[in-house]
């Protein structure tokens, strides 16, 4: 996805990645979030991105992944950070839970997530809707042709 020159193929590969991630969520028995992942990320957000890509009529991007010392440095840096994180995970392997919790199958359902969302986290939930309405209004204002 990162190496494609064409933005559309990049976006479609990202959709595939999101669907695979939903599959991983299913192996973790988080059914609700798997469905939301496909509906919100692979559905809504990526459709928005694809629409914008096609609206803007972009040329092929000029960038290269080879032959530039800055790029080499970046690859080394990102690789080093990734290796470090993986090393930390492997070193602390014995300290983290080994098996999936027996409560996992219950707490992944729509019912229990919804219960938690509307009871313990009722106020943040309302704030989330406020964030969404602000974003919608902001997006319309920003993308409008001319401000009055």
């Amino acid at each position: 996805m990162v190496t494609r020159k064409n933005a559309v193929s990049s976006a479609l590969l990202l959709v595939v990645t999101f669907c695979f991630l939903a599959g991983i969520y299913l192996t973790l028995q988080a059914q609700f979030l798997a469905v939301v992942q496909v509906a919100v990320y692979a559905g809504a957000i990526m459709v928005l991105v694809l629409f914008v890509i096609m609206l803007l009529n972009l040329k092929e991007e000029r960038f290269s992944l080879t032959g530039n010392w800055k790029t080499l440095l970046g690859v080394l840096g990102v690789g080093a950070i990734c290796a470090q994180v993986i090393a930390i995970i492997l070193l602390s392997k014995d300290k983290i839970p080994q098996t999936i919790s027996p409560k996992a199958a219950v707490q992944g359902t729509v019912e229990s997530v919804g219960m938690m969302l509307y009871q313990t986290y009722a106020f943040p939930f309302e704030m989330a809707s406020l964030v969404l309405i602000t974003a919608a209004v902001g997006a319309i204002v920003l993308a409008k042709k001319k401000l009055q």
């Binding site: 988080a30 939301v36 839970p97 229990s112 938690m116 313990t120 989330a128 969404l132």
Partner: peptide
């Protein structure tokens, strides 16, 4: 899911909301 603590899933829900916005 491994710790049996549900707050994480609610947090993911909010992350998705913010990502959409």
């Amino acid at each position: 899911q491994f710790l049996g603590e549900q707050s994480g899933q609610v947090l993911v829900f909010f992350v998705m909301t913010v990502a959409a916005a």
